[in-house]
Design a protein around this nucleic acid. Structure first.
Length: 284
DNA sequence: ATCCAGGATCTCC
DNA sequence: GGAGATCATGGA
């Protein structure tokens, strides 16, 4: 990809394995809106970004302020995981796997966003037994009630939020889970920053200690928030696609699926997971 | 009206 | 370890 600054916008050309619709609508993030064909707004790191794509070209801009080159490089290159070569990853996971080849070719423009661990923690607790439109609405409710501007509220801003407060924002039975999550972060029992010095296994333990976080949600947070690409969230969809395409339609335990994913895709398991999840959801 | 959703928890065996 | 009921909310 090449990019230049022009009139306060960033013009990108030669985009490879980048489709803004596939990236935002493949289930990994919740704070975005479709405004038109290949035209989206999204919120991350306290900023609302507009993206208009046209083939291998795209424009990125802010609504009320210029988007400088330095900020684009500092914030959004990493967010969109631009420095990673998805062509290489796709080749690795699919070269001897015709099933994965089909899933990759269905949506080759997917990228795994590097999102904020704290926001992913709250978001994926809300995701349990819920639908994506409602997850998006509830997160918006929380941002409007407790956040500053369009920013996701900080742990400090949620420090005094009660279960009743959360319930009023339509989080349902997850209210007490959110209170517990905030407490874990504020007490330091759960580190909500990206820190490569913390082992994935230790982070996983910290996450599972929070009420309402089980195996699947922990994997989602480790993946979307902490960038641990050996994660492999197994929800009803992934279980369905794995059993159907890799286990001859036989009922298979989550442990077996994890073992298979680790052997088949190793450090790239998370990418395989995202391609499969999107593929089965669009082709149920 | 009844079922169900990117699940987790509790109970019971 | 596994099967079943239950948990808010709202859309089909």
């Amino acid at each position: 990809m090449k990019y230049i600054e022009k009139n306060g916008k960033i013009l990108a050309t030669n985009l490879q394995q980048f489709n803004i619709g596939q990236i935002l609508e493949c289930g990994q993030c919740f704070r975005f809106e479709k405004l038109g064909e290949d035209f989206y707004s999204l919120v991350a790191f306290g900023q609302c970004l507009f993206v208009q794509q046209n083939g291998s070209r795209a424009e990125f801009w802010y609504e009320n302020a210029p988007l400088p080159l330095g900020e684009f490089e500092r914030v959004w290159l990493d967010y969109f995981d631009i420095k990673r070569d998805y062509g290489v990853i796709q080749a690795k996971i699919a070269h001897s796997d015709p099933i994965m080849r089909r899933a990759v070719d269905f949506a080759p423009g997917i990228r795994l966003l590097n999102q904020d661990p704290w926001e992913m923690l709250i978001s994926f607790i809300i995701s349990q037994n819920n639908r994506i439109p409602q997850i998006k609405q509830v997160i918006k409710n929380i941002c409007e009630a407790f956040g500053e501007g369009c920013a996701f509220p900080t742990p400090q801003q949620l420090a005094n939020a009660t279960a009743e407060d959360f319930r009023a924002l339509k989080v349902g039975f997850r209210d007490k889970y959110l209170v517990d999550a905030v407490a874990h972060v504020l007490s330091g029992n759960l580190k909500a920053q990206r820190d490569k010095s913390i082992a994935t296994a230790d982070l996983r333990e910290q996450l599972l200690a929070v009420k309402g976080i089980g195996e699947k949600v922990a994997h989602c947070i480790l993946l979307m928030g902490y960038g641990r690409h050996d994660s492999f969230p197994v929800d009803v969809w992934v279980q369905r696609v794995m059993e159907r395409l890799y286990f001859d339609d036989k009922k298979t335990s989550v442990a077996k699926i994890h073992q298979f994913a680790a052997e088949q895709w190793g450090e790239n398991a998370a990418f395989a997971n995202q391609y499969l999840f999107h593929y089965i959801r669009m082709n149920p």
